[in-house]
Design a protein around this nucleic acid. Structure first.
Length: 874
RNA sequence: GGGGAAUUAGCUCAUCUGGUAGAGCGUUUGCAUGGCAUGCAAAAGGUAACCGGUUCGACUCCGGUAUUCUCCA
């Protein structure tokens, strides 16, 4: 039996023999594309080629692409692991032609590979061809049919409709008919009963599509019309997991050697046995062996779990895995991180990034697992309350709102609520839960509603980026569109030439202005989308076709460049001081400061920070020229450039060198000419971001100068407050000591004073109708003292009624204490007394408990009456 | 980006509708035992995240800020 690794290698060898360049997988985490969080198809990294925004370096390419799908019409996260063939992370094998070969070769080669190389029996295979569509006025794909007919019997070629056999990237853009290859894996008996041809594209688990060949030959325009493309492309995708299952003769993807290693490890760790069934326990095995891949590869590509965006998707996948082993494998400790090394080893030859960062990834995963297990613990306490409340209401239904609150606010999974509820004979009101969920979604969507108009195209072509050389350029608007969200309108502009740097690699996009003959348009931000540089403006010029001068805000750009160059110096210094395990995990560079996240397992000590700063400042004083060169990737790696995981690089890369012996980085950002321009570098903060990831914040250039001045000013102010003490720190320590001593002193004085007053009051005790009555004006400084005094007296008197009045800063205060026995025997209630006989007299309000209550008011004159009135009640 | 929640002793958390902030663990001290594990007793430890408002009175109610958690996009 061929292993998955062999099968993958055969694919690459085959297409290499057909003149293809084999390229590595693009990162699974997508950067700089607001429409996509993760790579979800093999073609993602070639999107720019198809759109014509960028020229391909090879016209024939083959690869295996890491993909992630957690939502979509055929793949809901909650379904993964339940069946035998859906996955979160999967590999898409693909061969590509950019304006090179077309239908003939694509069809012939796919057949050759499947039947000659992989030796799949021809009578197991069916192919589909686009059958035409009347509404689009498209004929059937006769060309593809004819090429297939030369290879395959007529009854194995099926006609497909637009839904299955016409592929579109989006509402507009390149598209075309496609031709799928399906394989029928059923037994001969089953085949005899129902012919495979009727089960194609019918969601049968054993009759599955394994390869789709898309022939891009049209461009879909905004008005819906299809225009033939000048250059025709081939875009294919074959799911490796399915292919391996077919070639290894398995019933389920999970029975192939892509997954059996992980499953065996889970068996070993949990002591449970995988039984190939649909039981909860077996589903848990599949869920874990699937999710572990998604988790491992996304983190290895630099995306840490978090509570927003792509990071949140990873957190959700990870938590679903935890839920499954926690509930169905009866394993209550972190488990996933134990599987990582097995996975890393399995893919070391294909996707080395996981193996190379295995320590970091394992730690991050363990930390996440620990955090979620803690969340579960807290949720378990909450659900106890809910269950008690439910039973108290004499019902068997857990309120859907309560279940949703538990889920929404405390992150407690709904399936666990169901499970725990059922253990108590309760069920969840699912309708109400779903309704709450729906409301939440509607609210979120409304808040993010983005209304985007169509592009208005004035001129076709690509943008010439001149921002590395100049900050000012002649430009025309090529296309623009209006976008609005939450009542705020903005315009997005694409220019034929621009000096504006679009946000990338952590460096923020440029701001500036477009100078037209009669007006100036402010550019507030610049971003990248589909390879286009998009300028964000608050308004449109009156004449959008007028020539303009695009001018970048020089001050901001210069300050940003200072921080970007400082980031490189910092990165190199970190590696020198902390070790070469330091790798960039995130970066933000703007005109005010820089933020750099990197892998490191301990807090960076003050001494280390001092050494890092010293190295960077040394490099600044050495005034090292910053050399920027474009070279081949191999050359850059040979030079010792730090290549980042999770970054997509073409064959030619831009390399930024600050002293070849010190810092060489692949980087598309903009930099200063020489390090001396940085002036000074200062680290302003060091903190933790996630397990094994630290964050460093720093300033350089003018921002560093401002920072230092602020700090010095602060110290000067402090010293001045301390009467310019020689040693301000010692002076503050002394002040604090004195303060705490004084506080204690005052406290004990007050306590003693109160004891004195209390003893005096005890002598004035009168017995009225068997009740100990104390009613006096006292001299205390706060309501708190008055209360203390009252409570103190209570503990010294039996059968008491106490009324204490005080004049504190011109306001009247009264405390009334009534012994519980007196309350019971005579119905005297301190709270009631205060409300009915005190508050009114002093023009105020009050209240309290039966045994003690207080009141306050503005009329000090009423206090004497208060005492007499209460005496009268006895 | 939008919603919900949390922040109380060194740590983990109580404090039902506003009315004198508590527990367990840990710390310190004393006692018991030859020593340890430990047991007993006592003590210290609080600006209730921060700022403002309502109230006679706010940990508690309202608003804002910060940090953290959580769900949705």
């Amino acid at each position: 039996m061929q292993s998955a690794n062999e099968i993958r290698r055969q694919f690459m060898d085959f297409f290499r023999s057909k003149g293809h360049e084999v390229v590595p997988s693009a990162p699974i985490v997508v950067k700089n594309d607001p429409t996509l969080l993760f790579t979800n198809a093999g073609m993602n990294q070639f999107k720019d080629y198809f759109l014509g925004n960028r020229a391909p370096e090879h016209s024939r390419i083959a690869d295996t692409q890491k993909c992630l799908r957690v939502s979509g019409k055929h793949n809901d996260l909650e379904e993964v692991g339940v069946d035998t063939y859906h996955h979160t992370m999967f590999e898409m094998l693909g061969n590509w032609s950019f304006g090179d070969y077309f239908k003939k070769e694509a069809i012939e080669w796919s057949w050759e590979l499947l039947t000659d190389v992989y030796k799949i029996p021809k009578d197991k295979l069916y192919v589909t061809v686009f059958g035409g569509d009347a509404t689009e006025n498209l004929p059937m794909d006769q060309e593809a049919y004819d090429y297939w007919r030369a290879l395959v019997a007529e009854d194995r070629i099926l006609m497909g409709n637009k839904k299955d056999n016409f592929w579109e990237m989006g509402d507009t853009g390149p598209c075309g008919p496609c031709s799928e290859i399906h394989v029928d894996c059923r037994t001969d008996d089953e085949k005899a009963m129902v012919p495979g041809s009727v089960l194609v594209n019918a969601d049968h688990p054993q009759v599955i599509e394994i390869w789709n060949n898309v022939f891009m030959q049209f461009n879909r325009q905004k008005d819906g019309n299809l225009v033939p493309l000048p250059a025709k492309h081939v875009d294919t995708g074959m799911g490796l997991e399915r292919l391996v299952r077919v070639l290894q003769g398995k019933q389920s993807n999970y029975d192939t050697d892509l997954f059996t290693g992980s499953i065996a490890s889970i068996e070993q760790i949990t002591g449970k046995k995988y039984g190939y069934t649909d039981s909860r326990q077996d589903i848990a095995f599949r869920v874990l062996s699937d999710h572990i891949r998604a988790i491992g590869f996304t983190i290895a590509d630099g995306q840490l779990p978090s509570n927003t965006g792509a990071g949140y998707v990873i957190r959700r996948i990870l938590r679903r895995a935890v839920r499954y082993y926690y509930s169905y494998l009866d394993y209550k400790q972190p488990l996933l991180h134990q599987l990582m090394p097995v996975l890393a080893l399995q893919f070391a030859g294909v996707f080395p990034e996981l193996h190379q960062q295995i320590d970091l990834v394992s730690r991050v995963v363990k930390e996440e697992e620990d955090a979620f297990l803690r969340t579960l613990d807290k949720g378990l306490k909450k659900i106890d309350d809910i269950i008690t409340a439910t039973k108290g209401r004499d019902t068997l239904t857990i309120d859907g709102k309560a279940a949703f609150e538990l889920y929404d606010t405390f992150g407690f999974p709904i399936d666990l609520t169901r499970l725990i509820g059922s253990e108590h004979g309760l069920h969840v009101d699912e309708g109400a839960f779903t309704a709450e969920m729906h409301q939440q979604k509607t609210r979120s969507r409304a808040a993010t509603a983005l209304d985007t108009d169509d592009w208005v195209v004035l001129k076709d072509g690509g943008t010439d980026f001149v921002g590395y050389e100049t900050l000012e350029a002649d430009a025309c608007i090529m296309k623009y569109r209006r976008v609005s969200s939450k009542g705020k309108e903005q315009y997005q502009l694409v220019l034929d030439a621009t000096p504006f740097y679009a946000e990338s690699g952590g460096q923020v996009g440029d701001s500036g202005e477009l100078v037209f003959p009669n007006e100036r348009i402010q550019i507030v931000d610049t971003k990248k989308e589909d390879g286009m540089i998009i300028h964000f403006a608050e308004a449109l010029p009156e004449n959008v076709s007028a020539p303009a001068v695009a001018r970048v805000n020089k001050t901001a750009r210069a300050a940003t460049e200072v921080h970007h160059s400082a980031t490189h110096l910092l990165h190199a210094a970190l590696r020198q001081v902390l070790g070469t395990h330091v790798a960039q995990k995130g970066s933000l560079v703007n005109d005010e400061h820089l933020r750099f996240d990197f892998s490191h397992f301990a807090k960076v000590t003050d001494e280390e920070i001092a050494r890092i700063e010293a190295i960077v400042n040394e490099k600044i004083r050495a005034n090292v020229p910053v050399v920027i060169r474009t070279m081949s990737k191999d050359e850059a790696v040979a030079m010792g450039a730090m290549a980042l995981f999770g970054e997509k690089y073409g064959n030619m890369v831009r390399v930024v060198i600050m002293d070849p012996a010190y810092s060489i980085e692949l980087c598309g950002g903009t930099h200063v000419g020489a390090t001396g321009q940085l002036g000074f570098f200062k680290i302003t903060g060091e903190s933790a971001v996630a397990a094994g990831v630290r964050r460093m914040e720093a300033v350089s250039g003018a921002a560093a100068e401002a920072f230092v001045n602020e700090q010095l000013q602060l110290i000067a102010n402090i010293a001045a407050q301390l009467k310019n003490a020689k040693d301000p720190v010692r002076a503050i320590e002394k002040l604090q000591e004195e303060r705490s001593q004084l506080e204690k002193h005052v406290e004990s004085l007050e306590a003693r004073q109160l004891v004195g007053i209390r003893n005096e009051l005890l002598t004035k005790d009168e017995i009225i109708n068997q009740i100990s009555f104390v009613g006096q004006m006292v001299n205390v400084s706060s309501l708190d003292s008055l209360k203390k005094l009252c409570s103190d007296l209570k503990s010294h008197l039996n059968d008491h009624v106490i009324v204490l009045c005080a004049n504190i800063d011109g306001k009247a205060f009264v405390a009334v204490g009534v012994d519980d026995k007196v309350n019971a025997a005579r119905g005297l209630d301190a709270g009631k007394i205060i409300k009915e006989h005190v508050a009114g007299l002093i023009k105020g309000g009050g209240g309290g408990q039966k045994s003690m209550a207080t009141a306050g008011g503005s009329d000090v004159g009423g206090l004497a009456t208060v005492i007499e009135n209460i005496r009268g009640l006895l």
